[in-house]
Write a protein that binds this DNA or RNA. Structure first.
Lengths: 224, 224
DNA sequence: TTGGTATGTCAACAATCGTTCACTAAAAAT
DNA sequence: ATTTTTAGTGAACGATTGTTGACATACCAA
């Protein structure tokens, strides 16, 4: 939950395994991470980011309110950092999917399964993206839209190289990928709304069905 | 902006034209409407419903904070009323579409045009639905989901009677309608995000393209 | 006309909010 | 060894929050 990627400014020769290499300015990174985690944690309780208070966040992070300003100008800036971080998770998913290659048989079903598992494994990030993608602060919504558009573009490139829809113009392929992505993000909301123990099977089935219809239509599409 | 459908409890014989027919208990309805309008107005400024304060709403409504409790238990309850009211707008749209009949020629394009116009004409309600459908309070989100599901079911019925997809099972048709509805709601977000003067033509084109792909896939779909 | 009901107002409360300033302590740089 | 820098603390501010109770005023029914 609080495991977080460190990005040391100057990675010297690692002496040991953990917590040793860089200066102790890593303490800063730790509380910064605590603040980010606190915000995500609060949203996991069913709150929207916009309604989070600065003091509230620092309280959960276990820091005094004034410490917040050592890391972010205001909660708004924290939100933009959350966008970046969540977008990183999106790209990581795409990278892993790329590494796994394209399963020729039952590709959609497999992809949806992997996706659903990934959403659950990165619950907080998807909760933020899917939740703040609409509503909430216009600036944050815009930032998310940019990241999602970029993600869509990358997905489009991948599909283009796979040559699944050779007859589609780049624009058509892009639009279809946009449809696919928004459908997947809608599915993420549904998955995250599930009671903790429940299976996502039904949602996965729906998602598979919808995506198959889209892909069927895309295969037969002819730009006039 | 503040024109609101009155539903007088006992519409007697109207003596004059306005403000005369029913008891003066209509004053209650007016401030209640003012509160609802105030909330929508604040959300139109880019705020999410969850972040609205009770005092804030009453201030915009031009009432003292304590008056709020004469109409709603808390802001949460106001939210549920907003869901009802917005859902009414949804149904109104469907009813009008039904009355207009199904244009056989270029049906998707025409529908999208009408839809885009309807979204702009009912900006606040669509802003609420599209914005609070994800994120925000779980209860409100659940209520919206119910209304949207019901809307989807009605749309499914309509399409079934039109017999556009005679080969689809009811379940398949429902799933496809779900895909259509969420695609349309996504489009609503895009339309509402447009700068005031801009044309929605580009978004409409994208929407038409996506829906055509979906319908193309749906026509050729065969349940195994 | 009288009395009850209900809508809106006013004053006040404890709590929380975001933000400031001065200060401590420890790491980094000199 | 000394200075500088900086992450975190603590106290305090004015403002705003949700909620309460008592009060006024106008409506409705008797």
């Amino acid at each position: 939950m609080s495991v977080r990627s460190r990005q040391p400014s100057e990675p010297e020769i690692p002496e040991s395994e953990e917590e040793v290499l860089p200066a102790r300015g890593q303490r800063k990174q730790r509380t910064r991470d605590a603040l980010i985690d606190a915000a995500l944690q609060l949203m996991n309780e069913g709150r929207s980011f916009n309604s989070l208070g600065l003091r509230e966040i620092t309280r959960v992070a276990g820091v005094v309110p004034t410490s917040f300003y050592r890391h972010f100008r205001d909660t708004h800036e924290l939100g933009l950092v959350l966008v970046e971080e969540s977008a990183l998770t999106l790209r990581r998913m795409l990278r892993e999917a790329r590494r796994a290659g394209a399963p020729v048989k039952d590709m959609i079903r497999r992809s949806v399964q992997v996706y659903a598992a990934f959403v659950l494994a990165n619950r907080l990030h998807f909760l933020f993206i899917a939740g703040e993608r609409t509503g909430g602060s216009p600036v944050i919504r815009g930032a998310i839209r940019n990241e999602v558009d970029q993600f869509t573009a990358e997905l489009t490139q991948d599909l283009r190289h796979l040559a699944i829809f050779p007859q589609l113009t780049p624009d058509s392929l892009q639009m279809i990928c946009g449809l696919v992505v928004s459908t997947m993000l809608n599915g993420a909301t549904d998955i995250l709304d599930l009671p903790p123990g429940d299976s996502a099977q039904l949602i996965e089935d729906t998602l598979v069905h919808q995506l198959r219809v889209i892909f069927l239509g895309a295969q037969l599409w002819r730009d006039e």
